[in-house]
Amino acid sequence: MARIQTAPYVHTQRTSLSRGYEWLAALCPILVWSIYMFGARVVTLCLIGGGLSLGLDYIVQRFVFKMKRGARLDMMSLVYGILAVFSMPVAVALYLPIISAILVVIAKNARIIRAHRLFNPFVFSAAVLGICFKSQMTCFTRPFAYFSPFTVSLDPKLVEGYRVISPLQFMADGSVYEDGVMAQLYGFASGCIGEIAVAAMILSLIWLCIRREADWRGPVAMLAPILLLSLVFPSSDAESNYYAYSVILSGAIFFLSVFATNESCTVPQTKNGRYIFGAACGIIIFLLRKAGGGFEWGYAVVLVLNAVSPFIEMLTKPKLATKKNGKAKVKK
């Protein structure tokens, strides 16, 4: 007689591990666009960052958490590694993805309450690198300036020759990106490897939504307040609608709205909680940019809200069906 277990006796075929493949597929359009824009060095950076994240996480799962065979290789660590690389400029030294992989694995395995991670792994990595290697992380080069994929540290003079100002840096100076909104939308502006490819990110989001791995409401909840507030309170001489579109298309806003609001372990589980999380991210980023003057607030705000997401979840727990007033009768 076979060993009898309790119900249910059927299980969905979609597992936490298969989820990683869905996300990897979602990153493909961004990766392809980034390689087209910045050359083969993107591949090297992604291989180092993603591969090392996967390997280190495997070691942690096997030797620290002693996970069973089959549950050790989590493709999501590869995804986080690549996303961390996507928030770097192409001209960074090749040791930066190594550091980012270590940071990703630390953040991925640091859990506070139940399943909640303290910080989103790739946002944590990008934020720490942004603080520790500020000059490298803000050194943007013009598109189609292909650098060697194998040089560990690029010659600073060479990099300086191709250096340009990113749309976000334009805004910090009180002006707007001159090449137009469409250039930003299609991803022809300068910036971080993955952050510029807005059109490709929209494709990724559509894919993730179709595969039920992401929810469009999170990105919309984050982008909508920024768009509205930018329309009402523009910070430059440009037309307010042009300014507003530039705000959501520049920097990490779109990237974070797609990937940070859909990272399940660091956002509230409840739908309303996710709305609040997204909206709070958007509003706080806008306010800090307005009040603080600086424009690099996106990652910091997401990290702070990651830490408070368990509380948002507690506040937005759905009202129990069985606790509702049950005096209604079926109508005649």
């Binding site: 076979a2 060993r3 009898i4 277990q5 006796y9 059927v10 299980h11 597992t15 936490s16 591990l17 989820r19 958490f65 996970m67 069973k68 089959g70 549950a71 989590d74 999501m76 859990r111 139940r114 399943a115 909640h116 399940s264 372990c265 509230p268 589980q269 409840t270 739908k271 979840e313 727990k317 759905p318 009202k319 129990l320 069906a321 069985t322």
Partner: peptide
């Protein structure tokens, strides 16, 4: 027949909450 389930830590995806008919957070 007995299911061979993958057993990894909760990823807080919220799907259990989505499918709960009495709107609990089963996790």
């Amino acid at each position: 027949k007995p299911l061979k389930r993958l057993r990894v830590p909760c990823i807080s995806c919220g799907r259990c909450a989505e499918v709960c008919p009495v709107r609990l957070l089963p996790s």
